[in-house]
């Protein structure tokens, strides 16, 4: 267990009713993505509306949980919108590009923040919020 994992809070998200399937899956350790039933477009952030064809019919497909880092920043001075993060110490905020395509905002955990690089291969881990949901975060693959 690294320093990052010990201190990084996992605040519960506000769960809008139409994205319950996403958050229920996280509680079971699964990452799912909405996919348009009309045109097969993958949708991110999750919502039952297709920005490609305006369909409101989606299915929830399993993502591989693998991706690579598109960009990142090491937050060093406790500046954060949520109070919970202001005492969290040094942590990594990042966009991970999933194998399926979408770039998702997340944290990179289980590693030295100074070792993080754009292009690095990562895999999903889930951090329990204690309220029936878990936050998908990512750690270096093969670490």
């Amino acid at each position: 267990m690294t320093l990052t994992e010990k201190v990084l809070p996992a605040p519960p998200p506000f769960v809008h009713p139409e994205v319950k399937p996403f958050w229920e899956a996280t509680a079971e350790g699964r990452l799912v993505l909405p996919k348009c039933l009309e045109c097969d477009t993958l949708i991110w952030y999750p919502r039952p509306f297709c920005p490609n064809c305006a369909s409101t019919r989606v299915e929830w497909i399993a993502a591989s949980g693998r991706g690579s880092i598109y960009s990142f920043t090491v937050n060093r001075r406790g500046q954060a919108d949520l109070a919970a993060y202001r005492e969290a110490g040094v942590y990594v905020l990042a966009y991970v590009e999933l194998e399926e395509g979408p770039r998702v905002m997340t944290n990179i955990v289980d590693c030295d923040p100074d070792s993080v690089r754009i292009g690095q291969q990562v895999e999903v881990v889930f951090h329990d919020t204690g309220q029936g949901t878990a936050l998908p975060r990512f750690r270096p693959r093969g670490a």
Binding site: H16, Y45, N75, L93
Partner: peptide
């Protein structure tokens, strides 16, 4: 607050975003 109800907040705010962090990305 964590319970910010904008549709994207649940997928961003919970990861410790900040105005500064966004521009740093």
């Amino acid at each position: 607050s964590a319970a910010s109800t904008s549709p994207e907040a649940s997928f961003e705010l919970v990861y410790g975003t900040s105005t500064l962090g966004m521009y740093a990305l």
